[in-house]
């Protein structure tokens, strides 16, 4: 068992190093451009997507279609689903003990952007 411990630990740290090296040396992923294709989405339109299957959320001024992502979210559904159809910026920024989501989450979120949130729009 001692040998298993040593080899598993060595493989683990080697893999951590490989992931780190992969992020340093790989070309940065193309990020979807935000701007001209962005359309304005009002609070009323946002509110029509309050079900988990068609879940949209407004976060930091953007609107994100998170219906496909929700099953992947680590927390239990009751934590995240109530924010569907709403401005979830505050929840996003204060995930745990006042801390915001990680950079990794920010980067993943971009992939789901569909528009700009215009709270007073029609």
């Amino acid at each position: 068992m001692r040998k298993l411990y040593i080899s598993a630990t060595a493989v683990f740290w080697a893999m951590v190093f490989v992931f780190w090296a992969g992020s340093v040396w790989s070309p940065r992923a193309e990020q979807p451009t935000v701007g001209s294709a962005d359309r304005a989405i009002s609070a009323a339109e946002l509110a029509r997507h309050a079900l988990p299957e068609t879940c949209w959320m407004a976060i930091r001024g953007g609107v994100y279609d998170l219906g496909a992502y929700l099953p992947d979210h680590p927390s239990r559904p009751q934590v995240i689903e109530p924010w569907c159809g709403k401005d979830a910026t505050e929840a996003y920024n204060t995930k745990t003990k006042g801390r915001a989501h990680s950079k990794s989450a920010d980067e993943m979120l971009i992939n789901y952007r569909i528009g700009t949130f215009v709270p007073d729009g029609h």
Binding site: F19, W20, S23, S26, R28, A29, S104, E107, M108, N111
Partner: peptide, 13 residues
């Protein structure tokens, strides 16, 4: 990794 090596590392970092 399905997103990018950067996302993969940030999951661990």
């Amino acid at each position: 990794l399905a997103d990018s090596p950067t996302v993969a590392w940030q999951t661990l970092a």
